[in-house]
Simulated scan of single mutants.
Amino acid sequence: MAKHLEDGKKGEQLALDFLKRQGYDIITINWRFKHLEVDIIAKEDGILVFVEVKARRSVLYGEPDSFVDWKKQRFLLSAAQAYLSFSGYEGEIRFDIVSVYLGKDFRIELIKDAFWSN
């Protein structure tokens, strides 16, 4: 497996463990519909949360969360709409980003309510 794919899988597992420790109830991981995907779908305090995980070994090209640009946000909004349609969920939702720094300065950062559609 390519190194960046290994890093992605490792980052997702670390993010999943981190979210569980933060009190998130995990509903599903890597939810897919057609070309859409959400890394983690969970609930926290009754809110349905769509989580995008970004793992990087270096910030040479930018912070991990900076890779969740407007195009990726639109993609995630579409995925969330599809999930909501299938699940019938009608409550509050939000979008979080988990940045996993895999390099020598290992750390995990959570950005709650990272973006929203207008």
Rank of each mutant, 00 (worst) to 15 (best):
A2L: 13
K3G: 13
H4Y: 15
H4D: 15
E6L: 15
D7L: 13
K9Y: 07
K10I: 08
K10R: 11
G11I: 01
G11A: 10
E12L: 03
E12P: 01
E12R: 05
Q13A: 06
Q13I: 09
Q13L: 08
L14Q: 08
L14P: 01
L14C: 07
L16I: 09
L16T: 13
L16N: 05
F18N: 07
L19F: 09
R21Q: 15
G23F: 11
G23S: 10
Y24F: 14
D25A: 15
D25R: 10
I26A: 01
I27T: 12
T28G: 10
T28A: 14
T28H: 13
T28Q: 06
I29P: 01
I29T: 15
N30A: 09
R32Q: 15
F33I: 08
H35F: 11
E37T: 04
V38P: 00
V38Q: 00
V38R: 00
D39I: 00
I40R: 00
I40D: 00
I41D: 01
I41F: 06
A42I: 05
A42W: 02
K43P: 04
G46A: 07
G46L: 09
G46W: 07
V49W: 03
V49H: 02
K54A: 06
A55H: 02
R56E: 06
R57P: 08
R57S: 12
S58C: 12
L60N: 11
Y61F: 15
E63D: 06
P64W: 10
S66T: 12
S66I: 08
F67Y: 15
F67H: 14
W70S: 13
K71H: 13
K71G: 04
K72H: 10
Q73A: 10
F75T: 12
F75V: 08
L77A: 14
L77E: 10
S78D: 13
S78E: 14
A79Q: 07
A80N: 05
A80T: 00
Q81L: 10
Y83Q: 06
Y83L: 07
L84G: 03
S85I: 08
F86L: 10
G88L: 02
G88Q: 02
Y89R: 07
E90K: 15
G91Q: 11
E92K: 14
I93T: 02
F95H: 01
F95V: 01
V98R: 01
S99K: 01
V100K: 00
Y101A: 04
Y101W: 11
K104S: 12
D105A: 13
F106D: 14
I108L: 10
I108W: 11
I108D: 03
E109Y: 06
K112G: 07
D113N: 12
A114Q: 06
F115T: 02
F115Y: 02
